[in-house]
Amino acid sequence: MSIFNVNPVTVDDYRRRALCRLPRFLFDYLDGGANAEATLAANVNDFDRFRLKQRVMRNVDQVDTATTLAGFDAAMPVALAPVGMAGMYARRGETQGARAADSQGIPFTCSTLGICSVEEITAATGKPIWFQLYMLRDREVIKSLLKRAEAAGVTTLVFTVDLPLPGMRLRDYRNGMIGTNLRSKLSKAAQLTTSPGWIFDVGIKGKPHTIGNLSDVVPDPDDLNEYKAFIDSQFDSSVTWDDIAWLRSIWPGKLIIKGVMEVEDAQAAVNAGADGLVVSNHGGRQLDSVASGIVKLPAIAEAVGDQCEIYLDGGIRNGIDVIKAVALGANGVLIGRPWIYALAAAGEQGVKDLLGTFQSEIRTGMALMGVNNLSELTPELVERV
C-alpha cells in the first residue's frame, strides 16, 4: 500500500512522506548527522532505556498539560526548535511553522539561518516568537540582529553554543550539498528532477530563497553560496563564557543557552546569566559518539534545575518521550526534525496535526500514570532499564 493512501500520524509517517517529496540533498541535510551518525541514532534509541510506571485507580479526571516556558503560556511542554533553511522544505516554511505553533499554543523559534526573516515570521502570526542566534565574529552583526529581534517583539533569545565550527555531516558531501564544483551542481540538478512538485511549490513559488535575517550583510542576497561564504567566515572558535556574559549585558529579554551536555557547562551557563539552557548535542550533527541528551538530562537537571529552566532536544519523537523528559527534570522539550518532516509532507496542517497527536499522547500518558499535572511527573515515575 502506498504511503499516500493512509493518513500520516507519527513522526515516522511524515518522515517517509518527506523522503518522497524532497530532493535527496535537502532530505539528507535534515535527516542526517555527523560522521557515522552514532549519536543521531542514540538520541532516539536511548529513550527506550527509560520506562514509565503505570499506576491505576487514581482520579485523573482533570489532566492538564499546560505549563509556562520562558514566560510563554504553553498548552504543553513543547516548543518548535530552530531549523536552518526551514523555508526550503515548504513554501515560506518558517511562517507556516509559526502559524501551526500559534494554533496549538506553543512557542516557535526562528533560526538565524531561516529563509524567512524574523519580521516576516512575526507578521504572519502577530505573536511573539523565540529567536535563535550564533556567536558571530562580527559582533556588530550580532547587535544588529538583536535589535531587529527586539523590535519584532522577540522576548526570548535561544543562543547556540555548540558550533565553533560545523560537524562532519558526510551525507551533505555525498549529495553535493557542500561544494560548488561542477560535480556537486550536476548531482543536485539530477536530484531535483525527482521532485517536480517541490520545484513548483517551493523552488518557484517559494521565492525569494534568501537567508532573511542576513540578507543585508552579504553582497548578493539572492545567492545562497554568498551566505555560505559569509557564515563560514563568521564561525568563531575563540568564544568563551565571557562572551555569553557580554551577550547577557546587551540582551534585555530571556536568555536560553542551547548546546549544553555537561554539568560544569550548565553551571557556567547559569553563572553567565542564562535564564535557561537546552541539553543538546545539536541533533547529533556536531560531535559524533557523544552521549544522547536524554542520558545527560538527569544530572544536569539535578545540578542546576533549581537555578534555571531546563529544556531537552534531540531524539524526541512522540508525547511519551516528552513525558520521560519532563519526569527526568526538563521544563519542556524542543522538537526540530519532527516538525520539518510534517511541514515537508503536509505543510502547516501537517505540523498542526502532529502537534495535536503529541498533546493527545502526553495527556493520555499522564492519565495512565495517575497524574493530573506536569508537576507530578517526577523521577520516581521513571525506571531505567
Rank of each mutant, 00 (worst) to 15 (best):
G332C: 02
G197W: 08
F230A: 14
W198M: 02
R139F: 14
Q104T: 04
A101N: 08
N175M: 00
N43F: 08
R384Y: 01
E37R: 00
N331D: 13
W251E: 04
M168I: 00
V83A: 11
E119F: 04
P107R: 05
I3D: 08
G87H: 02
I199A: 10
V9T: 08
M135H: 14
A301G: 08
A274L: 08
D28M: 10
A79Q: 13
S215C: 09
L354E: 03
L30T: 10
A86C: 10
R15C: 14
Q132K: 04
D265A: 13
V322P: 09
L136T: 01
D172S: 11
M135Y: 14
T193L: 15
V326L: 10
D28T: 12
R21M: 10
A41S: 09
L214M: 13
Q191L: 13
L170V: 09
Q359L: 04
A66V: 07
K207H: 06
E302Y: 03
V304R: 05
N213K: 14
A98D: 12
C20Y: 06
V290T: 05
M135R: 06
D31S: 09
V295Q: 12
F235I: 09
D12C: 00
L19W: 03
L146C: 11
R49C: 15
F159Q: 03
P252W: 12
D48S: 15
I256H: 01
I256A: 02
N45L: 10
P82A: 07
E361G: 02
A291R: 09
L186Q: 15
D172Y: 12
K143A: 12
G336R: 02
Q104K: 12
V263T: 15
G315V: 03
V56T: 12
I211S: 00
Q96A: 13
P208D: 05
D288L: 13
